[in-house]
């Protein structure tokens, strides 16, 4: 499993949506149960999956999945968007 698939799995499990697809512009507004509660659950799941610690400033600064991927890659992850995306 590459890091993109890992991230995709975390999103699908956290929001309970097995068909969810990721794109850089995807944000909380696009997923109906992406509320503040599940946002924290998402952060916890990502920290555990990638073995990283996200700072509060980082959590607050990200506006969409593209920002998140940028932060994670800055911490050593290798998330590559599929060519079709």
């Amino acid at each position: 499993m590459n890091d993109f698939e890992k991230l995709l799995g975390v999103f699908r499990v956290t929001f309970g949506k097995p068909d969810l697809d990721l794109r850089p512009s995807l944000s909380a507004a696009d997923v109906d149960n992406w509320d503040s509660f599940n946002h924290i659950n998402l952060i916890i799941a990502i920290e555990e999956a990638f073995g990283v610690r996200l700072k509060t400033r980082e959590v607050n600064s990200m506006k969409n999945v593209g920002d998140l991927v940028g932060i994670l890659n800055g911490k050593g992850a290798a998330i590559a968007w599929p060519t079709s995306a």
Binding site: H39, I40, I43, K55, N60
Partner: peptide
């Protein structure tokens, strides 16, 4: 403490 900052949780959600 960061979960207080981000979600007003007094401790780790777990």
């Amino acid at each position: 403490g960061r979960y207080w900052s981000t979600a007003k949780a007094p401790c780790h959600p777990d």
